[in-house]
Amino acid sequence: MAYADDCDAPVTLKVLVAGGFGAGKTTFVGAVSEIEPLSTEELLSDLGSGADPLHGVEAKTTTTVALDFGRITLDDRHVLYLFGTPGQHRFWFLWEELCAGALGAVVIADTRRLADCFPAVDFFERRGIGFIVAVNEFDGCHRYTPDEVRDAVGLGPQVPVVRCDARLTSSGTVTLAALVRHLLCLSSTSTSSSMESGEA
């Protein structure tokens, strides 16, 4: 079987973009991606992991979940891949696969429906995956301060909350940079607990 196993291959960098329906995940991934925004689907079998989806496909309810996919070539050694998918509990099994090897996550929050981002926040907190919350402010909405959002979502003081316009490449890129800075903070506090970083 043809498998290439090249140890010199560039590392695979993966960032997850989570949030409720309509929060702006597809828009965000499309805006920062260098390729045409691609959407693919995963088939979900209601029976979960133990079931063999081969049998009784017609009879069983099979749902699909959209998966946004984007790519950013940072330099000749580093390509960042983005996956966006809804953060509902019933999609967790998909998130499990996506989380493997992920650098971190951006949780997009729509202030009109803040509660929709709770499941994603819970998920990343429980798994110890570094994440930031990006508040996607839709036109004509009440503006919340990052601290108001932090309180409402119940985030710890260390989790950055940033503002973002998911439609803008620059805003999305700044958001990703904020995530990476946060991951750097996390890694420096875990390697040397004395190091303090005020940057968020």
Partner: peptide
Amino acid sequence: FPGGGSFAADDQSLLLAVLDGL
């Protein structure tokens, strides 16, 4: 994947390269 498959934010130079690229 960095760190061999699990969460790998401890690779600081990698994260710095990503930040630079962004």
